[in-house]
Structure formats: C-alpha cells, structure tokens
Amino acid sequence: MSKIHVTTTVNGDSVEFLADPRETLLDCLRDHLDLTGTKEGCGTGDCGACSVTLDGTLVCSCLVLGIEAEGREIGTIEGLAQGHELHPLQRKFIEHAALQCGFCTPGFLVAAKALLDKNPNPTETEVRYWLAGNLCRCTGYDKIVRAVMDAAEEMRKEAV
C-alpha cells in the first residue's frame, strides 16, 4: 500500500509527512511528527485523550485520517503555551491539582481551550457537558471543572 505525501500546518508550522491512507491523524502526529503529547486512550472517539483542533474545530484525532490533514491547520497540546508563557488553563490545572496521572490532561486542555474560545463565561453545567467526551479516571472531574472555571474567570478579567 503506497504512502501519500501530506503537507499540513501544525501549531503554525508547515510540516510534511508520508501517510499510509489507513493511518489516523493521531498516528501521524505521534509516529511521523514526534508530537506525542496527543494521547491514545481508546481509538474509537470515546475518551477525548487525542483531542486536537482541525481548522479551529475540536475533533478526536483518532477519528480523522492523516491524509485528511492535507492543507488544513492542526492545533495540538504542544501549541497551547505561547513560548514560555503557559496558557491560563495550563497554569490553573497545575494550581488546582486538576491532574493526577496526567494522561488525559492534554486532551482536556485542548478541549477546554476550544470551549473558552467559543464561550468565555461557561456555567459549571456547560463545562461538564462540553467535556463529557474527555474521560478522566483519576479525579472525579471536580478539580478539572474548577480549574476551567477559574481560568475562564481570569481570562475574562484580563480581557477587560
């Protein structure tokens, strides 16, 4: 099965890779581009650990083929911090102890950022439903939800 050449943009950088048409975007990010911050927890779109943005839309990278990335813009956890400056969500996750094992954390952060980009002032219920596709088995979600709400509040204050 011959591979297909793909040119795409990841976290603002133009990149190229060769993909077997059966490979998912998740496989390509991890195995071809060494971007291992995006995790595989299920491979069926049920856990959200592989969350990335595709042209700004939040998706599971396990449900996108690598070859579909041609000409698109991908955002991953590695692009969340701006240089040395952590995104407020990243700081708040550490501050609130919103991670235990940390494996689901990249997916939660990417998904939460997509929420706050769309809705800067979500209710607790909105946060919980938006993040329902991100499984965490360690925390019971309590501290994650608090961290997202707190980051949103800080970002609203900064925006004023």
Partner: peptide
C-alpha cells in the same frame, strides 16, 4: 450524537 469532539466531524 457523540461528544463535542465527535460533533466536530
């Protein structure tokens, strides 16, 4: 149908 992520697709 599915999660927020699945709704994106």
């Amino acid at each position: 149908v599915g999660s927020t992520q699945v709704q994106g697709r």
